[in-house]
Design a protein around this nucleic acid. Structure first.
Lengths: 353, 353
DNA sequence: GCCTGGCACTCGCCGGCGAGGACTGCTAGC
DNA sequence: GCTAGCAGTCCTCGCCGGCGAGTGCCAGGC
């Protein structure tokens, strides 16, 4: 990264004002507009000189000669990091978040979806949520329910609720008591474990200890494997239609590129999961990535606000807001942070202990 | 509806050809195009006369003088009902549907989502699916699992899998055996029932018969209520970005109107659930609604293909494809029908018996 | 030395205009 | 009943010039 230490007070103020104005109007900002709408104490000619220098410094760009300036990635970055004043969550927003979670579902997948809808409504942008990996959920209970001598229902419950259920059939007859004993043994020995710490070998050992048949052992293996189901990360997105209101997406090609990314859950996941690796710390603050920082050509004119939220002891999920670079960063950071906090609280409430 | 019995063979052919051509090109069809591309045996002047009459009859409209004709709602309707030849599912499509369901999930909600993705991919339009009401699922099993003297986990399993689970706490102490006995009694007496036929009074009666406390009775009530959860119909949609490729949606206003409808699950549900009431018969064929037949101003330029699918003894869900009126009806009807059939088969496979 | 008013210049936007072209409807003739 | 031909309509597209927003630069002033 290029160092940009200079930026006297006036330049900083001008840059901040240009960004602010552009975020609000979506129009390139000219020197006259600036002097008219904001009290700068100097003439437009001076501003012009300053803006020319800001452009030379890489903070502003001109869409074309004889147009005003718009911020570059570096301009937005400086604004976000050093110039804008942090906002706190507005009263109305806070109330809406609180109300929403008050009636939220108790089921993790549904909560995630509801949260994206809430976040897209509040932010007026596209909202995305990733559920914490099922591997990090705490093991709570397993029950093999005897249905008939040759069938049972196997259920695994984790801290997030029922993670797997399966009706299974086998060849040899099994007594109800045997299943109960196996269930009890599993529950006792696995109690307090996290799903990712439960190896197949552990299950096998417990089964072997009770001398159960390989058929039943396979049932146990199967249902635990299903419960962990680590391949497809749970992810939800909502509010794509909000992007239609943004002038930058009136170009259909850009819009399509974004929608394609949203449709492909894999890409969407990769986009945000970067952050998961970085943000292992739990209550990390919202993080902003701007334009090319997203490392995706189709998103060169977008920004993303991400914020982790916690679930249980080890689980970390991620919320994100995707929108044009010209987004109200202060407000969105406040919204994302507030929502993540409430989401964490809600999940703690519905978590199975 | 106005009766339109006349339509001699030649008019019918011309109408069919205009619709066909317009569906393929998205351009108003002129008389010369028609004579050049299709072997009609008469000159363009004759076609012009015929087309003028078709317009007078309400089958065609002109976007403006000096443009070709495009079909009206009535024109499409006649085409779909009487002129087009039914198509059968193509080999590739059939294979793709088969392959998709081979690896499909066993969980109803996930299956529904996967089906919309499949259907939107195949059709190149927006796909929607409604899950059968949870009321129609068959009751399979309830288990009150003793966790501690004052807590238990209650689980209700229906033919679609685990429908509700809840960890509950209460004041007085309860023995594990009592819960087992209650579970057994509920299972015996409710066996074979459909969820909607299980009244609270039935549950109360069983609880009273065993003399369980009102606290435990309330647990049973709660978990059954949660299992039926009749308010929010499960619905999924996918493929909105396909609509961007259609020239009729390059107008942002129209696009936004559609996306708004998709986002509001309620509206979307109403749009398609009309059909659910009508199509109580199970293996009903796909049904087409065109333009104003949808009774929604925003959808005046859209058509919808709906087809019911079955789940279990009483359950009926619905698949739908939403796109511009200018959609390849024959192909979409075949795809929708084929997908609904496979979906029904798949659900029968994963259904809990 | 920094600021400012003034000025020439650039360039996108927009409305008007006219040529071109795709159709149609009509009419007269076969 | 069909057809060729023709006049007429109306959309599309490219061109052009005026307008206006905004810039960069310069000379003069505090």
């Amino acid at each position: 990264m290029n160092e940009k230490p200079e930026l006297d007070k006036r330049k900083a103020f001008i840059l901040a004002t240009v960004v602010y104005e552009y975020i609000n109007t979506a129009e390139p900002v000219g020197s006259v507009t600036l002097t008219q709408k904001y009290n700068l104490g100097v003439s437009s000619a001076t501003i012009r000189n300053e803006m020319a220098e800001l452009e030379a410094g890489g903070y502003l760009v001109q869409p074309h000669t004889s147009a005003g300036r718009i911020p570059s990635d570096a301009g937005y970055r400086t604004y976000v990091d050093r110039l804008m004043q942090p906002e706190t969550l507005g009263k109305d927003d806070a109330r809406r978040i609180r109300d929403e979670f008050r009636e939220a579902s108790r089921e993790l997948g549904e909560v995630i979806e509801q949260t994206t809808r809430l976040l897209s409504g509040l932010s007026g942008n596209l909202a995305i949520a990733i559920a914490p990996s099922r591997d990090t959920h705490g093991f709570k209970h397993v029950q093999l329910i005897w249905l008939s001598p040759r069938t049972c229902m196997a259920i695994v419950v984790t801290s997030a609720g029922v993670a797997a259920q399966r009706v299974v059939e086998w060849m040899s007859e099994v007594a109800a008591d045997d299943l109960t004993r196996l269930s009890n043994a599993l529950n006792t020995q696995l109690s307090g474990r996290v799903m990712e710490d439960i190896a197949l070998a552990d299950l096998d050992a417990i089964c072997a200890g009770l001398g159960v048949s390989t058929e039943i052992r396979d049932v146990v293996r199967l249902v635990f494997a299903q419960a962990r189901q680590t391949e497809e990360p749970e992810i939800a997105a909502a509010g794509a239609q909000n992007l239609l209101d943004q002038p930058e997406f009136h170009d259909l090609r850009k819009l399509r590129a974004i929608l394609r990314i949203v449709e492909e859950q894999r890409t969407l996941y990769d986009l945000i999961a970067d952050e998961l690796a970085v943000e292992t710390k739990r209550d990390a603050a919202p993080h902003v990535r701007i334009g090319h920082e997203l490392r995706a050509d189709d998103l060169a004119e977008c920004s993303v606000v991400t914020v982790p939220y916690r679930f249980g002891d080890r689980g970390v999920g991620m919320l994100a807001i995707l929108g044009p670079r010209r987004m109200p960063y202060g407000r969105l950071i406040a919204i994302a942070g507030g929502t993540a906090r409430r989401l964490g609280d809600h999940l703690a409430d519905v978590e199975i202990r």
